[in-house]
Design a binder for these strands. Sequence first.
DNA 1: AATGAATGAGGGTTCATTCAT
DNA 2: AATGAATGAACCCTCATTCAT
Lengths: 173, 173, 173, 173
Amino acid sequence: MTEKQEKILHAALELFAREGFTATSTSKVAKHAGVSEGLIFRHFVNKEGLLKAILDEGERRFKALFVDIVMESDPKEVIRKTIEMTSQIDKADYNFWKLQYKLKWELEVSSDKKMEPLRMALTNAFSKLNYESPQLEAELILLYIDGLGSALLKGSTIHPDEMNQFILKKYNI
Amino acid sequence: MTEKQEKILHAALELFAREGFTATSTSKVAKHAGVSEGLIFRHFVNKEGLLKAILDEGERRFKALFVDIVMESDPKEVIRKTIEMTSQIDKADYNFWKLQYKLKWELEVSSDKKMEPLRMALTNAFSKLNYESPQLEAELILLYIDGLGSALLKGSTIHPDEMNQFILKKYNI
Amino acid sequence: MTEKQEKILHAALELFAREGFTATSTSKVAKHAGVSEGLIFRHFVNKEGLLKAILDEGERRFKALFVDIVMESDPKEVIRKTIEMTSQIDKADYNFWKLQYKLKWELEVSSDKKMEPLRMALTNAFSKLNYESPQLEAELILLYIDGLGSALLKGSTIHPDEMNQFILKKYNI
Amino acid sequence: MTEKQEKILHAALELFAREGFTATSTSKVAKHAGVSEGLIFRHFVNKEGLLKAILDEGERRFKALFVDIVMESDPKEVIRKTIEMTSQIDKADYNFWKLQYKLKWELEVSSDKKMEPLRMALTNAFSKLNYESPQLEAELILLYIDGLGSALLKGSTIHPDEMNQFILKKYNI
DNA sequence: AATGAATGAGGGTTCATTCAT
DNA sequence: AATGAATGAACCCTCATTCAT
């Protein structure tokens, strides 16, 4: 990975996250990265290839976020960690997460599959705690963190920590 | 409103909802509506004007959805109606709501202000029911319906009615 | 000539004179005249037909300006009247004359032929006054009034009367 | 400056001079230059940028024409050189000068300021020669060369050298 | 006589992409 | 690896003009 390659990826992430994939031209990316436009195509073949490179690179972040939850054996801890997930997001990764949300709607990129391990971990946790409908409980939490993530990235005034504590109390955590 | 004007609006709504605003060309809209491209501009001035016309026309749908909740005096009913809101959405309006979500991310159109009356109605309802943190409770429900709406419009397999009943039980409704 | 026809002609003259023929759209003319765009074509067939109508209507002004000079028998008077011609131009006719100059360059409408009677009258006058090169003298005066007209219509600061007096003195008039 | 850039400039100058700036489409320029239309915008940003490039490039021609006159110390020579200016115009520059005249009327590009050094040189020359109204004399000559230039570029039958000699005699030159 | 809906061609401009260097 | 010239298709939009009413 050349220095220029990284510059391109960084510029593209920022612009895609801010303006959207379609609305960002490769020429704008090149200008932003201080690089010739042709270089983008030499390294990433396509505009789509550029996007894929960003997403692939970011996949690791997803996993890093999940692994700690999925490996947890204490069911209450699974729930707590999931709910507090949004607080864990590094501000440096802000653009990456914003891009995820944007793409979910702009292209029909389903991030649903990525959530599957989380859903299973949650369902399992609620089962262990003898909740009546572990699947629905799990689903509800996923809806919550989706809504909260969306709100935070859109600049809502919600205090995430306060909100999270509030919900944790509902689960006696 | 001529027949062709309506055809344009209808085609535009469908395409904007499916492919996004930026990604939909005016020529595609025209072709889809069976109309010359120039006519779009004669009637709606701009591509943006076309979008605005769709949004303005849809504003009524928003209000129709809210008025019944905001006018309700029984606090439990307020909560129930809000939670069941997503079930109320007419399948004919599917495209309109999908467009709303898309625009929230594509352009930075904040639909947050539109939610304000709902937030107040909910906060008020939880106050009457002597909940400890009415504001947080209200916020939580808004996050839930945002997440649920998002999931449904994205083609999730969630069964909304089941989910709603499940949640209502948590509020003893 | 309907009232609306006149409104169209008036609006067109103003816009053609200000912005040029090509740069003025028929829709702008219609809007300016407070008239539907179609009406222009009903009355004048073409955008060119509209221009022709304006020019035809203005032809009379040309002739009115010339007839007094051409009919004059006193050679010195011929010269004087020609030189003072630009001062005679009514301010109400400003747009018409500006349009003439614009068209001379925009389309290749030669106004040269229209000058022919004037050229002959001048040549004749200088002949009578025993000038050595009556034709060149006549041509020179025509060049002068062309230059002066151009300067005045372009908003030059030249004082035309002072200038005219200055030149008349050169011809001992 | 690539070969294609020059081809574009050349084609544009010819077409702008012949048909006018507004009436010449960028696609016509591209076709004439044997170049893709997009290239025009890559090199000159705008249609206006293209015009500006032509004008800037031509500015040198203006200066080359003037500098010899303005630097002249012999007043009679100043007058002679000014009057004979139109004869100096290279036939290769025909299009450029035609464009100047066209733009004076099409856009409201005042070429008046460019004439200022000439006006001053002439006024000064007539002063030295003890003419009564040096300013008016200078102005008159400017009007004359403006008219003559106009006539020549419009294809008049005037014989410029003969005309110039005729006038020079009036100034005893 | 007059309107306003409607069109097809063309306007200037941006786009993702290719290629020679 | 990197550039910058070059392209052709598509973009949003305006134009002169036609036609039903």
